[in-house]
Design a protein around this nucleic acid. Sequence first.
DNA 1: AACATATACCCAAACTTCTTAGGTATAAGA
DNA 2: TCTTATACCTAAGAAGTTTGGGTATATGTT
Lengths: 112, 112
Amino acid sequence: MSNSNLYKGSLSTIILKLLSENGRMYGYEITQKTKELTRGKLKITEGALYPALHKLEAEGLLEAEMEKVDNRLRKYYKLTEKGDKETVLKISELENFVATLQTIFQPKPSFS
Amino acid sequence: MSNSNLYKGSLSTIILKLLSENGRMYGYEITQKTKELTRGKLKITEGALYPALHKLEAEGLLEAEMEKVDNRLRKYYKLTEKGDKETVLKISELENFVATLQTIFQPKPSFS
DNA sequence: AACATATACCCAAACTTCTTAGGTATAAGA
DNA sequence: TCTTATACCTAAGAAGTTTGGGTATATGTT
């Protein structure tokens, strides 16, 4: 996704989150939805997205289904039960991580 | 740093931030300070820290100075002028990234 | 008709950043 | 004597990207 090498490791969590909200999405749709939500700030590259989707599928967190729409093939993904549980975990890990970063970058006043 | 592969890419920004606040630190001190600030949640491994410090020094963002304290050698680092400027940039990139993540994980109510 | 752009999937080489697992050495405490 | 803390370091491998390709259909533009 565009510059910023900061998001490393957060891609799979983003994918899981989007699928948990939208139920069923295909790859290209995920890139567009992310661009839309972040107002263009996060652009998922296809070179990162597809391997990530395949890995999540291999881990049993996603299941895929091909569908032809307007004579073009789409591969729809949805969360498995295992994926549902993992999504909860990963989102909470990401939120914890952000909270931890705050302790370094926005330390609370110490009233000293 | 302990589990969580989320922080990938944020290590150098953490180092720069700590140096900008403390003026002068040595490697081991950075690991301890980080552990303290994050209450043990982020543990910088030495295998990640030292190469990162060397890279920042090679890029001209840090300068180092050896000092013997209690018969043990410490390598103190501080920001160069270039490092000062880069720190401002990197911190703002990290804050922007976190804000962008919020648009995905904590979307604002749409009043629809 | 030709061309560019959007949609839609994919792969592989190279790169960055980290983990893991070592190594050396001094000081202090059990 | 042994472990833990302090203090530096390196190298192989893993993981997750970027970059730069490839294929194909549909649509809008010149």
